[in-house]
Design a binder for these strands. Structure first.
Lengths: 205, 205
DNA sequence: GTCTATATTGCGATAGAC
DNA sequence: GTCTATCGCAATATAGAC
């Protein structure tokens, strides 16, 4: 029986590979570099992974699964449809900032996957976007938001969080709480939610 | 004396390389593929380019220069500070959609450049973001917009246009005019501009 | 300018000893 | 499981004939 805190070789390899893929890109990263970062030689890697592409697929699929879990849990909060959407968006932003490396990989290395593997990731992403879209539509049908086009609102929120993942660094000009607060405010404003600013509060003042 | 309509080999090479870099990524594209697309053999490429990296730098630098020109011209429109910002954002979105390939390359291949070349592109991007930021701040000081954080508003608008560049295809569900209209509306809503929807109009109804 | 041929380097993946 | 050594291949870039 193994302790949860013991990370096996496969986990270490995935984590180190994610760092390298983020810094240099998938194609520009060699398995020799991955092996060195994991404290192995390249030949030994193949005792833990199937191929370089499968390693990428594991990283990309895993991050989408975790993101989906995070949003689902957040949206289960008590409150009206806007409160649920707001909680989901906060989790959405927080996740993108905290796991920026894997998120970035998921958004830039799709084309590095072959067709079958790419379809797996795209299906997860569609499922995620549909969940966000439903939360937006529920706020609209409840009369709490002016939904111009639910799909484009989803794109807007996805784009913003993805962008945050590309520049957020802990210790920067704004805390993560402040970033979550301001982008959530923007989202509610974009939906013409009444008293949008008051719903979010002022963590920056 | 050469006609403007005559595209020299270097232009053809840059255009074909941009297509390939967009489809496969910079690292995954070989100069043999670029040469074949331009109707040349790989050895002949070097009569027109310095190196693969310099070819990428030319593409990335060129798109930023063109983007900057486009926004500057749009912002010179007659009207109040919001009208100028609105015109700039429309041009910003239109440019990203119409030149999606090069924009996408500019946003994903920064890490493929070595330090000196990367600094050139980053400087152009900073200049561009500063221009957008000034337009936002002018709308704020004119009392026409509620600017929560000018820099984050810039990030929001940049993220949205970048995302549009990644999914927009002519002939899709929405026309480019409709896309520009809805994102501009979102931007003015995000800034709490009074009568935001009325300023943009309803191209979708 | 075009081309073919090649030097050099590094890649993913595998074989086989321990 | 670890390692070293290597296979087969493709990359960028260059040399040199035309």
């Amino acid at each position: 029986m193994t302790l949860v805190s013991e990370r096996n070789s496969a986990d270490v390899i995935r984590a180190e590979a994610a760092k390298l893929f983020f810094d240099r890109g998938y194609d520009a990263t060699s398995l020799r570099q991955v092996a060195a970062a994991a404290g192995l030689k390249v030949g030994s890697l193949y005792n833990h992974i199937d191929s370089k592409e499968h390693l990428l697929l594991q990283i990309m699929g895993g991050i989408m699964d975790d993101l989906m879990d995070s949003i689902r849990r957040a949206a289960a909060v008590e409150g009206d449809a806007v409160a649920k959407l707001q909680a989901a968006l906060a989790a959405h932003l927080r996740f993108h900032a905290e796991r920026a490396r894997e998120v970035f990989i998921g958004n830039t290395e799709l084309r590095s996957l072959s067709n079958g593997a790419r379809d797996v990731v795209i299906a997860k992403r569609s499922e995620y976007e549909l969940l966000l879209q439903e939360l937006i539509e529920e706020a609209g049908t409840a009369g709490l938001a002016d939904v111009a086009d639910a799909r484009i609102h989803v794109y807007s929120f996805v784009a913003q969080a993805t962008h945050v993942a590309s520049w957020f660094k802990p210790g920067g000009r704004m805390t993560l709480d402040e970033i979550v607060s301001i982008y959530t405010k923007f989202a509610l404003r974009e939906l013409n939610v009444p008293n949008a600013d008051a719903r979010v509060g002022h963590s920056t003042s």
